[in-house]
C-alpha cells in the first residue's frame, strides 16, 4: 500500500466544487507530515482542462461519456477499480449528495473501513485519527485509522482549502475507463435547475429561519410576521420543507441553499450539521431554542434558551408597537 492520499474531484457543470479544494488542502496537510504525494482523481467527459486547475502532485484523469455526470454507479465503479488496482493510504471523498453515493459503496465493495461525516483528521504520534460528527452534531467520535487503506467521507466546510496558490499539477495521467463501465444499470440522466423562486434567500440581508421547534404549520404566521417586522425574509430548515410547509427555495443547508446574510435569526432550529453548513458564515446569528445543548448555539453569536413563541411575540410587540 502506498502512502499517497487520493482525493475524488467533485465537479458539476464544468466547475470543481469548493469541497474538492478543501479536501485537497486536507490531503496536503496530512501528506506534509510524511512526504506522501497527493493524488486527485478526476472523472468526467471533456474535463481535461480542469486537471490544470487542481492543486495535486498527480491528477489521474478518466474520461468517458458514461462519466459525463458523476452518477452514483458510474463514479463508484470507476473509483473502486482505480483504488483496487493501487490502494492509497486514504481516499478522501466529500460527504455531499454525490459523494455519499460513492464513499459507502466503494468502501463496502472493497471491504475497506470507512469513516463518514469526518470533520477532523490529523496525525497524532504517527497515528492517523479522524473525528466524525454524529447524532445530529451533538457528539464527536474520535476514530483511530488502522493500517488498512481507509475511505474518509468528509464534511463540506470543515477543512480549509490549501492556503497556497493552486499550482499546476506535477503530472496528469490519463487512465483507461474501467471495464465495469460497460455494464452500467443506470440509464438516463437529466440535471434540473431549481424553479424560479418567489424570493432569493441567498441575496437576503436578513433572514428569519424556522425549524422543527415551530411545531405546526399554523405557527408559521407568527414567524412570517416577525420576518416582516424585521424586514427579513422567511427561510427554514429541511424538516419544514420536507413537510411541505415552505417551498424548497426557502431551505437553508447542505441540500438547500447556502446563505450569508447580515442577520440570521434562528427560531427553533437545533442546528444539525447539514443546516449549519448552509448558514454558519452569516455575520450575526441569533438563535432561540429550548434545548441549551442545541448545536445551533455553537455557531450563534447570541443565544436564547427559551420558548420561541414568547420571544417572538415580545419582539413583535416592540417592533410593531
Amino acid at each position: 500500500m502506498a502512502q499517497r492520499i487520493a482525493v475524488l474531484v467533485e465537479h458539476l457543470e464544468g466547475q470543481p466544487t469548493d469541497v474538492t479544494f478543501e479536501l485537497l488542502g486536507l490531503a496536503r496537510r496530512i501528506a506534509n507530515t510524511n512526504g506522501a504525494p497527493v493524488e486527485a482523481l478526476l472523472f468526467g467527459q471533456g474535463v481535461r482542462h480542469l486537471a490544470e486547475t487542481i492543486p495535486a502532485d498527480r491528477v489521474v484523469l478518466v474520461e468517458d461519456p458514461r462519466l459525463r455526470y458523476l452518477t452514483p454507479e458510474a463514479t463508484a465503479v470507476t473509483l473502486a477499480a482505480l483504488l483496487r488496482a493501487d490502494p492509497p493510504r486514504l481516499a478522501l471523498i466529500p460527504n455531499t449528495s454525490l459523494g455519499m453515493d460513492v464513499a459507502a459503496w466503494v468502501a463496502a465493495a472493497l471491504d475497506w473501513p470507512l469513516i463518514a461525516y469526518c470533520e477532523g483528521l490529523e496525525a497524532r504520534d504517527g497515528q492517523l485519527v479522524a473525528t466524525a460528527q454524529l447524532f445530529g452534531g451533538k457528539i464527536l467520535a474520535d476514530v483511530r485509522i488502522d493500517d488498512r487503506p481507509t475511505v474518509i467521507s468528509a464534511l463540506a466546510g470543515a477543512f480549509a482549502a490549501d492556503a497556497m496558490q493552486p499550482e499546476p499539477p506535477g503530472t496528469i495521467e490519463r487512465r483507461d475507463p474501467p471495464s465495469e463501465l460497460a455494464a452500467l444499470h443506470t440509464r438516463s440522466v437529466v440535471l434540473e435547475r431549481p424553479e424560479a423562486a418567489d424570493v432569493d434567500i441567498t441575496r437576503a440581508e436578513k433572514i428569519v429561519a424556522v425549524g422543527r421547534g415551530i411545531e405546526s404549520k399554523d405557527n408559521l404566521e407568527l414567524a412570517e410576521q416577525l420576518a416582516q417586522a424585521l424586514g427579513a425574509v422567511l427561510a427554514a430548515s429541511r424538516p419544514l420543507v420536507d413537510a411541505g410547509w415552505l417551498p424548497r427555495s426557502r431551505q437553508v443547508g447542505k441540500s438547500g441553499l447556502k446563505v450569508k446574510p447580515k442577520l440570521y435569526f434562528a427560531l427553533g432550529i437545533s442546528g444539525a450539521p447539514e443546516h449549519l453548513e448552509g448558514m454558519k458564515d452569516a455575520e450575526l446569528i441569533i438563535a432561540v431554542n429550548k434545548d441549551p445543548k442545541a448545536p445551533i448555539f455553537s455557531v450563534a453569536d447570541y443565544g436564547v434558551v427559551a420558548d420561541l413563541f414568547e420571544v417572538a411575540e415580545a419582539l413583535l410587540e416592540r417592533l410593531e408597537g
Binding site: A141, D142, V143, S298, D301, A306, A314, L315, R318
Partner: peptide, 26 residues
Amino acid sequence: PAIMRLRFPEEAGQAEILTGSASEIA
C-alpha cells in the same frame, strides 16, 4: 465501529446566552 472515544463538541465559539424575561430578551 472502532471508536477511541466519544466527546461533546468543544464549547469554543459558544453563543453569549441572553437571559431574563421574554420582554427583557426582546
